[in-house]
Amino acid sequence: MVKVLIDGVEVEVEPNSTILEAAEKAGLKIPTLCYFPGLFVEATCRVCVVELSGTGRLVPSCVFPVSDRLSVETDNVRVREARRIALEAILATHRIACQSCPRKGACKLLELCREYGVEGIPVCAECLLYGGDCLLTREEACLGPITNAGCDGVCLREGKPCVGCRGPIVSRDTVREAVKLYVGYGVSLDMVLSRFSVYNSSQPDYCRIVKLLSNLAEEERHNQGV
């Protein structure tokens, strides 16, 4: 176990834990946006940045490992300022009106923007950067959030749903988490199943994934009493 100081609060955590986990243990909340444990932990949004005390260095708490006697500040002026600009940068490439978004404003991005005083409107920045619109708004299974982004794909620019041509970020374990995410967005399970089948067909674990999906679909149908 190592001792870490988070905003002056001392906590003992496992040596391989992240600052975010240590903060949770200390009872402090650090905002996150792109952090989906088990699905996507790549520190891309930089909303969870914290300052290493005394160095002025800002680091993403979701992946940065703790070390003994590490001291961090999670909510000073510099940290808040960086978070605000990060949110602004995300918004700059996010041109969806909340009215047409299935989440109807009940989203984390909007919540954080309000908290950090960012004005504007709020999901997958990549497609929008290339002038596409968000497919989740049409309740279609855009696989953007779980695939390696940055593709400038022709399909997206033509308004077709992303079939994950870059491949999934992780294999098997992503599936369960991802399904939850899409269903939460209002995408039908059949749609998710069909999309996953398309882009996982070249995966070595294809049969397992399809089986897992079918089971999930069965469960869901059962729950809905169909």
Partner: peptide
Amino acid sequence: GIPLSNVYG
């Protein structure tokens, strides 16, 4: 045995 998507990426 690498997915086409990966090759394209």
